[in-house]
Amino acid sequence: MQDVPELVIWIAKIVLIFGGMIATAAIMSLAERKVSAWMQYRYGPNRVGPFGLLQPLADGVKFIFKEELIPAGANKLLFRLAPALAAMPSMLTIAVIPIGTTAVIGGREIPLGIAQLDIGIMYMLAIGGLGVYGVILGGWASNSKYSMLGGLRAAAQMISYELTLILSILAIVALSGSLDLNEIVASQREIGDWNICTPMGVLAFVLFTIASFAETNRHPFDFAECEPELVGGFHTEYSAMRFALYFIGEYCAMTVMSSLNATLFFGGPSVPFMPDAHWALGVLAFLIKAGFFLFLFIWVRWTLPRLRFDQLMRLGWRVMLPLALFNLLATGAWIAFTGDH
């Protein structure tokens, strides 16, 4: 194990983590339908394979073989580019999330995360914030009123809630004293150290969770789609694999947001009451935590009705943003007076 080149380990990590995320996206597309069915006294898809487990595969085949339509008057370059722009940022951001602490295989220490960046969380926010381009450009390039309105709404919504998202994360960064996600994880080794166990952590957690719902365009903030008003919103004109890319992008964004939630507030791979647990157990703990937040995304979607657009804006600017600012201020005061991170 000692003489395996660094590059091979890197590629293995990328394949495992990236492939895992794509697989998660596929499973989520099934889970979304299954969970919604169970909440509504239904069975959900159960025809393809045992318990319908092969449904994502069937969907994939369907998407590949469907006809690709490009509306007349659409900007062809942007129309083709937009779905990739929507899916790519969320796929890139998984790189900095530590899914475990440090694996020891055959006497060799391997940090479990594709990249160890000093500015991990900054990178995440910067790249993650680009996801909105796919939605806006897709909406604009479609040359359709509905798509355009969907894109406009997405732009307004994402700008509004990104501020809250960043400010709530900043409070955690201040508490942990680092932008590096690995160090944020390292600062929460025991359950008492988890950021959720501080009063600012709780508020930041609530704000972050709500903002992450808005950032990923999920219910109850899915104004960019909003079927009753905008047909399909920004992806009205999309079909086949390009449409599927938007969906993969949405599910990948959910996966990243859930992972981030687990990492920032629940210690990531930290196992409760076992600070010196085996690294594999840590990975399992991380997957369980992230999995819960993924479930929460679906759970909320099938519980809450969609807000009105003015309510969304009022909530964003007049409730969430002041609260996030206050939280950051309180965190600063806490650190200044207690003198520790």
Binding site: V35, W38, M39, Y41, R42, W299, T303
Partner: peptide, 12 residues
Amino acid sequence: ITFRKFFEKPIT
């Protein structure tokens, strides 16, 4: 409420 419905028998 929705979580409790989770465990009820489907009527489909």
